[in-house]
Amino acid sequence: MLAPSVPPPPVRPRHPPKIQVRDLRLSYGGQEAIRGISFDVDRNDVFAIIGPAQSGKSSLLKCLNRTIELVPGAKQSGTITIDGLNVDELPSVYNLRRRVGMVAPLPVGLPLSIFDNVAFAPRAAGFKDKHELAALVEQCLRQAALWDEVKDRLHTLGTKLSGGQQQRLTIARALSHEPEILCLDEFSIAIDPVTTMRIEDVLKELKQRMTIVLVTNLVQQARRLASRTMFLWNGEIVEEGPTDVLFSDEPQSRKTYDYVNGIFG
């Protein structure tokens, strides 16, 4: 609806990956943050990225929607393709960013009303019809499990909500441009465990319709949600594979075992 250039992908039993990353390198002013990584993310899947701070997880997400271009001094090489198309060669970066929703670690409530927060991206994309907009806002807030709490005060400031509500508001906002890929960067860092579980339930729902890339510091969260997990360390992949394998007693790497079992890191 909002990304008219991309028709919904045909459902096939064994389809090509949604995202392909090949030999991605990234440096900030000469200092390497990502050192040549390659991986695939399947369609309608939850793909978790774990690893300690400074391992390049957030930078990787920024490469996916090309917001890395806004960071001064950042230099990127390698290719990222979505649906087989190189993101660097797409005609409209704005369109790309609408296709790749992003939820930041700390909820950023724009200084607008709850309604305007969710309606922001559709309006920026040129969405005008008031009734459709209202319906879309309601749908997104429902999907983010926030509607019942805010339906009576849609026109109060979004920044007045509690931390957990604001985080769900940013998820509703990310859904408002109907992304095919939803990236979440440590979404539970500022919210309590109960709210975290509510959002995790939301994510399980959303998986039916979109591909989710989940960066998390909570290894158990990856275990609960993701079918594949990647363990990044210092800008390099230590191990990438089915989540069951990474969390088993015999992952490929000893380091993985130690990390997911809390022996270090």
Binding site: L70, M102, P111, A121
Partner: peptide, 10 residues
């Protein structure tokens, strides 16, 4: 705020 807005394709 700027980052959030730009990340939504504005």
């Amino acid at each position: 705020f700027r980052e959030a807005s730009l990340a939504m394709g504005a």
